[in-house]
Design a protein around this nucleic acid. Structure first.
Lengths: 123, 123
DNA sequence: TCCATACATTGATGAATGTCAATGTTCGGG
DNA sequence: CCCGAACATTGACATTCATCAATGTATGGA
């Protein structure tokens, strides 16, 4: 089906980042390289036990949000490590960060996990 | 070094571990450590662009299955690398491998991606 | 103004991961 | 019985990652 696909050159760091980058809109001829790399970022964020637990804890909180000080103890990790994991989850679009006073409150981005499920369904 | 759990022997058999680690029966008290590690294995398998493309190609194939020789070219990877990725996807329970003659045919495990979506919904 | 709190950032280090070249294994054909 | 094709496995290497200790930053109170 695929005629030729050889020269996977180096990184074209210039990326439009607006709209799709690879697939012709006809059918779904499998993921393109750039598209796959982008979608893999979300799964990379989910591919760590402690980050899964962070999402789970934040989701289970009745207030819908948690601060870092409430997250270090249940994970048994240091505060810098928890901040690092939280940043990865925020960058992946899964968590939202809001600073109030000296505290930073993290909450689930509404629909973000559903979007990930949508990626799986549209593979 | 902290007390890190070393007894990692099981593949992602999506089965409620009989250990004491999981959930206390109160309600939704967040993921336990062992449970999170097990679920993270599936996302680790998905956390690579080339593996996402492999799943996508296999799924898009009209016959429902692909052999390795048809997968190396569209990815621009060597045959050992593709075999390595396929093994990870099989071990994660996402792909099924069937050997016929000298060829190895890979196909999506029915419902496997839906199960991953279920993990997300049940976080 | 000064200090303690809550969190982020940096630097370092050991472990895990992705890739390829080389080699091993299994199968079918002559 | 040997040879080539298809695939898996091994070993090596560079990159990425998870973690912690130390330090930086901002906020609020005394």
């Amino acid at each position: 089906m695929f005629g030729h696909n050889k020269s996977m050159t180096a990184l074209p760091t210039l990326e439009p980042a607006t709209g799709q980058d690879c697939c012709d809109p006809a059918g779904q001829p499998a993921l393109g390289a750039e598209e796959a790399k982008r979608k893999a970022l979300v799964f990379k964020a989910l591919a760590d036990p402690n980050r899964l637990r962070l999402l789970s804890i934040v989701k289970a909180e009745s207030s819908g949000e948690s601060c870092v000080c409430d997250l270090t103890e249940p994970l048994g990790l240091g505060q810098p490590t928890v901040s690092h994991h939280l940043k990865i989850l925020v960058d992946a679009g899964l968590l939202h960060r809001e600073k109030r006073g000296t505290w930073a409150y993290y909450s689930l981005v509404p629909g973000a996990l559903d979007d990930v499920a949508g990626i799986l369904a549209a593979l």
